[in-house]
Nucleic acid binder design. Structure first.
Lengths: 278, 278
DNA sequence: TATAATAATGACTAGACGGTCATTTGTCAA
DNA sequence: TTGACAAATGACCGTCTAGTCATTATTATA
């Protein structure tokens, strides 16, 4: 297991610097100080590695933002959203660099689909945020793309220029811009109709109760004795046999939410239990 | 010469579909119906080809926008700017696709520098536009990045979704957004100081009078007898030995500006003669 | 038609790549 | 100390790549 972790970390460094295609397995193994065979014992292929990286980080990214959004009041919602997004990017800057380099470039089918899937999750999050703050504006789809374009451009700045970067101020500035646009811009370009066109290519991937249970099982096995493990076990019980008060569930979810390996499970469970603080 | 043209067009198609690295010289030559040797007679390497492509199209892109901006009144300036940009993208969609795919990805040093150079030209154009419309706002640098992020995101939409695309409406919508932001957003993130940090990595590439003359010489050789060629000859005379009234120069510039091979020269000369319609 | 000059060919080189597998090394309990 | 099992190795394979160059085909000139 430690080997998989090592390969992930070292490979990510190289991918961020050189890109995925431009980094050879040879290079990765040398940088890890292991043999080529050892690499293929940990991962079936180079592709499997990048898929694992994508899952590992995007799950954290989405669930971080989701948690922040669900636990902010309307006052600070936009700020929290941007702040959480940029914070996660800064913490995992190598991964962010990799994603930016690979985003339009990829011809690996499975990778492309996975990226699109996480893209949609983020889009849904943003749409929910917009509707909550501004209601059912005619320009709401344009607002999604505006917010995403802000994120893209300033993420690029954050990653590729060695600038002293004040995330607080950036989030503030972008919140203001977003609000200004929501309140004053009137001409929609992406109409309901255009949005429908775009939705045609959607990937519908509903995570079923059984799948959630399976993922929980998996995580329970991985974790050693801890509050997180205990909480997961209780939540599993609860899913099979509902009995606790919602406050207890909320507490249990809170217990697991900040553990890197549990963030995704916590996100899935928040959706499953329909849990929101506000 | 026709061979170079053929290779450019066919290779661009493949690059747009598959990316630069993923397209082999073999593939290009087969698609052109020529031999590998013939390819290397036209271009010294695969890299030289992509550099030529970049120059060919970016020169048109920049000079198109520059001409539009310099010849619009303030009323329609933003609209014209966006419209001109998206129109050029749509006309050369294969090239635009290639650029988007390669933009963060490239590790070819010379290519990277060239891309940065054209990036800066665009940035200067946008800054001039902002200052002309809104004066010396504190948020002017943020406005640059906002405009560029609008362009990026909607260009992506235009290129990679098969949506019926109304460029008029898009340009209208984006003009409004830009104006709204310029008038109502107050919090700058990219301050003068940050902008200075970023300028440190600037490439200063001043095109000298001699270089302009050389490029003109080159173009004159390439062109067959035509109004464009005659105009270029007269403009060359004028550079060495100024004698004409500025109206005549303006007319000569107008003669050459729409010929694909002269757009860049026209752009350079507009700057040289300090020519603006307004 | 003969000759010179130019254009075009494609078999070939050298090297890099992802991935495999027979072999070696390390680690236990007995 | 032995034997059994698992972990790790790296030489090797087939395939692909950018780029070269001796050879051939085409064209222009005399």
């Amino acid at each position: 297991m430690a080997k998989k972790q090592l390969i992930m970390e070292k490979a990510l460094e190289l991918f961020a610097k050189q890109g995925f295609e431009a980094t050879s397995v040879q290079q990765i193994t040398e940088y890890c100080g292991i043999s080529k065979g050892a690499f293929y014992l940990a991962y079936k292929s180079k592709d499997e590695l990048i898929l694992a990286l994508l899952d590992h980080f995007m799950e954290q990214y989405i669930s971080n933002i989701d948690y922040t959004v669900k636990n902010s009041d309307n006052e600070s919602l936009l700020f929290s959203f941007y702040h959480s997004a940029f914070q996660t990017v800064q913490e995992h800057s190598n991964f962010a660099k990799l994603i930016i380099k690979e985003q339009a470039q990829t011809f690996n089918g499975e990778l492309f689909i996975k990226m699109q899937y996480y893209d949609q999750l983020l889009e849904q999050l943003i749409l929910a945020l917009i509707e909550r703050l501004f209601g059912d504006k005619a320009t709401k789809y344009d607002l999604i793309y505006t917010i995403r374009s802000f994120m893209n451009v300033y993420t690029g700045l954050l990653l590729f220029h060695n600038i002293p970067f004040d995330i607080e101020r950036l989030s503030q500035a972008l919140s203001e811009k977003t609000t200004v646009l929501a309140e004053h811009a009137t001409i929609p370009f992406i109409t309901e109709e255009v949005a429908m066109f775009m939705r045609e290519y959607r990937i519908e991937k509903e995570v079923s109760k059984e799948e959630v249970l399976e993922i929980m099982e998996q995580k329970i096995k991985e974790l050693e004795e801890s509050v997180e493990k205990e909480s997961l076990l209780l939540l599993k019980e609860e899913m099979i046999n509902p009995s606790y008060h919602s406050a207890i569930i909320a507490g249990l979810l809170e217990n697991i939410r900040s553990h890197p390996h549990c963030k995704w499970v916590a996100y899935l469970l928040r959706n499953y239990f329909g849990y929101e603080k506000n």
